[in-house]
Amino acid sequence: MTGQDRPRPVFDPALGTETRALLAAAPERLVAACRPAPGPPRLRAATVVARLVWIPAFAVFYGVLPGGWLRVCLLASLDDDELLGGAMRWGRLPVLAMMLTPALQILLLMLGQIEAAAVLAAVSFTGWVTGALRHVREPAAARAAREHHGSYLLPADFDRPAAGLLVRAQRAVDAVLGSRAHGAGLLDDIHNAVVLPSQEWAIAGALAEHSRLRRERVAQQPERLSPRVRALLEPQDRAMEASVRSVTGRIEALEAYARRAAEADDAYHESRVLQGLPEQNARYRDLLAGTVGDDMAGAEIRGMAEDARRAETALRERVAGAIRAGHDLALPSERPGVSPRRAR
């Protein structure tokens, strides 16, 4: 599946804005809904022992024996790839500071600045302890990905037919939300920021279910079934076809709305041009008055004013058409008089 045919992750609108942003910022933490939910993190016994030894050892080396070579030996002796790898990932500057701190402590002791050396040792030790304990806590993105597993859908949740339909839906949503008419507030009556994410999630949920069912059917190896058993599966096939048609119709409605939004964009551009017409008309009026007769000048000016009125009417009609198309997209839970239900 190419990048253009690959859908982006879809998040349940019921998730909070901060949670969605946290998950979107850490795609490597997300686990497809078609796979088992990740379990809570577990520390290896070697990691726990290494940390128990690591922290008090650094307390001694920072406070009693501030020697850079001792610290290098300690890092080399710890058989804990996570700790050593974490130190390397911090970058060259922090590691360089780690190596130079003991030398600075020795210099301060030689100069008789015992209190300054003690403060430096305490600050350095606190930093190292904080770094050690930081790995004990589960990262916020990993915890969110585990707790909200199933409330987001990834490309792996969709087979090729489903992915193609979802990409169409997402392109239509992007076209509407990226339109100048939406940005200018001309389509705000539809609450695009609410309706469109709900539509995308509902479509994605249906397509993910289609993908699961089709994968299960392939696993059944239908070519090895007898005609009588295959006949029993035909109602399932008809149900699948009906559901695919329904979802495809919803996607086509999204695409129709995107086309109406594009038309409204064109009309909005024309309206912006019309805003400068009065000043331009005055300049053209002076031009015509100086080159042709007054009667001809008046007719030309009246013609330009009539064109402006027609363009303004076209803008209102196109925006109204886009708004009507947008209202048809609302899920039952988003229509007046209908109790809210969670999109699936």
Rank of each mutant, 00 (worst) to 15 (best):
V194E: 10
V136Q: 09
F158E: 00
H149P: 04
E147T: 07
L107Q: 09
S124C: 05
A145L: 03
D189K: 09
M88T: 12
R143M: 13
V119W: 15
L109Q: 08
L104Q: 11
S151D: 07
M99C: 13
M88Q: 13
L84R: 13
R134M: 11
D189F: 05
V176N: 03
E115K: 12
V129G: 07
G86W: 10
T101G: 02
A175R: 08
E115A: 15
L107R: 12
S179Y: 07
A184T: 06
L107S: 08
G150W: 01
W128K: 12
A97T: 06
A184R: 08
D157A: 00
L196Y: 03
V173L: 03
V123T: 06
H135S: 15
M110H: 14
A122I: 08
A163V: 01
G91H: 11
Q170E: 06
M88H: 14
V123W: 13
L93Q: 14
V194T: 13
A162C: 03
A97M: 14
L153N: 00
D157V: 00
I114W: 14
M99V: 10
D188M: 04
T130R: 10
V123R: 11
A122W: 14
G85I: 10
A175W: 07
M110F: 12
L187E: 01
R137V: 04
P139T: 07
R180A: 09
S151I: 00
A121V: 02
A162E: 03
A172S: 04
P155L: 02
R160L: 11
V167Q: 04
L133R: 10
Q105Y: 04
A193R: 13
M98R: 11
H191A: 15
H149R: 04
V129K: 14
A181H: 04
R160W: 14
S151W: 01
D79F: 11
A132Q: 07
A132N: 10
V136W: 12
A116Q: 10
L177D: 03
A97D: 15
A145S: 04
R146S: 05
R160Q: 15
L154S: 00
M98G: 09
S179W: 05
T130M: 09
P155E: 03
A175P: 00
L108T: 01
A142R: 13
L83D: 04
M98I: 05
F125W: 12
A145T: 02
P139C: 14
Q170A: 05
V95T: 15
G86V: 04
A103P: 00
N192Y: 12
A193V: 06
A116F: 12
Q170S: 04
A169E: 02
H148G: 01
E147K: 05
A97V: 07
S124N: 06
L109S: 04
R89N: 10
M88Y: 14
H182L: 07
E147V: 08
N192W: 14
L84Y: 15
G127A: 11
S124R: 02
G164Y: 08
T101L: 03
R92L: 11
A162D: 01
D79C: 15
R146H: 07
L108I: 02
L186R: 13
